[in-house]
Amino acid sequence: MNVNLNKREPVYLQVIRHFKEQIATKRLEPGQEIPSRRELANQLKINPNTAQRAYKEMEEQGLIYTEGNSPSKITKDEKVLGAVREELIGQAIDSFIAAIRPIDVPLDEVVGLIQEKYKGDKA
């Protein structure tokens, strides 16, 4: 796990975003075990209290769940998983639009370019 952390944004939010990306990109599967807060802190070189806070927040948002004493796992709740995916797509589109809008490109041209690039990249 390698994350470039920004120094101005709360670290716990950056950790949560990192997990959402992992979930949306299927690198973390539903029901998969996640590292303990200690392991996470160690992997990311962050304060264990911050890792704790990130997990607490994710638990509240339903992204992860814990049964008894066993390690926390990624949720299997389709609704939550879908929402994560939508949220990330939404954010990506938002930032894309924010970047492209000042250039004043017609929408058709943008869509065309996207189609071309998107397919090209996949191939």
Partner: peptide
Amino acid sequence: TEEMREDEGKSVVD
């Protein structure tokens, strides 16, 4: 530090 980042968007160095 986390409160500073959250409330004011500032790093320690800032």
